[in-house]
Amino acid sequence: MNRHLKHALPAWVWFTGLMLVFVILYAPILSALVFSFSADRFPSLDITRFSTKWYAQVFADARVLEALKNSLTIALSTALVATTLGFAAAYADFRFRFFGQRMVLALALLPPTVPIVVLSLAMLAFFSRIGLSGTVGSIIVAHVVVATPFAMAICRLRLEQMPPEYETAAQNLGATPGQALRLIVLPHAAPAIGAAALITFAVSLDEYAIAWFVGGLEQTVPVTVLNTLQGQVDPTIHVIGTLAFAATLSLVFAAQLLLLRSTKSHKNKEVSP
């Protein structure tokens, strides 16, 4: 900011606000990490002993391992399908002008605005009527609906940074639409596709409401956490939490890094001499 523009309040006020917000955001995450290594059953400030016994307990728990297997299956499939759907829709929106384009765009971005309870309820009703509720497949199908808008948005924003002439120029030089897509569009969109896969994976890995409603006996990790929340104090939740945080945070940061680096290299190309 320029020298002549003074702030209404001194800088430390704003920075204190910034710190406070980050404390609120990250204290719960850090506390899970700290307590996961505490030997005490009841989490409190005076931690007596360091221990990894809760980790051992989690990894010996067949119920948790089963849930983990479910979670990974679901998240992987969701990431695959949601990224494919999201990229296809983003590409169609970028490349073509067609009737009802805005409607499709609105439809694609709608699911996140529907309250997750309502969506879960509707999904449960729908899947029980077609006899699919209580299956891993139904969770995947529903998670794809929730995750695709993120994939679509990420890919669409990245495509926006590419002049549409690149692709037509390739066709003008003899490339078929398929070749132009493969040789010109995909290399450009690759970071976004990677980021979209990571984010959709994280979204699915974390989603609890739909998985809880629709999954029936098939539990995912968040659903076991939800069930534990209702019961007694259970230190293993800190372990699961720490692992979940480690997993999703690294996914999200990896995705952000991918996007950030691709945007930077894009900018460098724009300011060619």
Partner: peptide
């Protein structure tokens, strides 16, 4: 990026941590 990341990470566990923070004998 740091501000947005928690949005995608286990909301339930963060609520559990808050429960521990605020509850009887909590931090």
């Amino acid at each position: 990026g740091l501000a947005l990341a928690p949005f995608f990470t286990s909301y339930l566990v963060r609520i559990y941590s808050l429960q521990v923070f605020l509850g009887e004998g909590g931090v």
